[in-house]
Design a protein around this nucleic acid. Structure first.
Lengths: 130, 130
DNA sequence: TTAAAAATAGTAATCATTACTGATTTCATG
DNA sequence: CATGAAATCAGTAATGATTACTATTTTTAA
């Protein structure tokens, strides 16, 4: 099944690339509908999954029960604010060496890891101090 | 609402403590039913949540869409096999220093992190080689 | 012993996501 | 440009994990 162009898929990807936060499928749907009023939620889900499978976007499972999506496919880490739930990019050094540490006493083959950081984001901390 | 003893809760916790893998709510339900035939799935969910909130067990969200539960509440890491889906404990050195690395260029407060390792477990690797 | 509070079984509801279907769009080929 | 097979779509139904609800039962302090 050769992939065919679809206006909807393009709009979804464009929207994702325009955001530095990491919207859920529903948020993508709400926003894309402004420009494309009769797009279907199913289409949004199908294309997000398709884009993720092709490696053009990243699916984030941060543990809040809803999938988030990120157009930035480069290796980077995320922070989840326990207060507001926002998912934020972290600029930090590579920590891939933890794979080696994990593999030292393990008989299987470790191929990758997923790490999320939790706490209070800068914004929420300011609010709490008032 | 003071906590009252419940036989069901005890059985659920006992079962969890008897397992070194990390069963889902449904697996807990299936097994506990052997000993307690008319326990309700809702009761299993409610008590797992309760125990997790009290810090007596740990809820694991490994990204497979189903919550896993672990009676070992000590800080340790988990490996998820991409082949069989099993969740396995890792014996490895502490890597809490990644919190410090993550916090270097961040204006919020990082309080913790969740890390899962992925790959092929020892068992599945053996099978593949045959 | 008793009665208020907590917990239960059983079932209904929720919520994110996926599957299905008949209509529409894409695009390689003539 | 025309056309038709394959891909995609919109709309909706189905799924699956989890949570909420309710009438009944259990726990436990007094």
């Amino acid at each position: 099944m050769a992939l065919k162009y679809s206006r909807q898929r393009q709009v979804i990807k464009d929207f994702l690339m325009s955001r530095k936060d990491h919207p859920t499928a529903d948020v993508v749907y709400m926003n894309v509908r402004q420009e494309y009023p009769n797009i279907s939620l199913g289409t949004v889900y199908r294309n997000l999954t398709l884009l993720a499978d092709m490696g053009e976007i990243q699916r984030l499972r941060v543990g809040d029960g809803v999938d988030h999506f990120d157009a930035d496919t480069s290796a980077h880490y995320h922070f989840v604010c326990s207060e507001c739930g926002n998912v934020i990019d972290l600029k930090m050094d590579n920590i891939d060496n933890i794979i080696d540490i994990a593999g030292l006493n393990f008989d299987g083959e470790i191929q990758g890891h997923v790490t999320y950081f939790y706490g209070i984001c800068g914004n929420c901390r300011k609010k709490t101090l008032s």
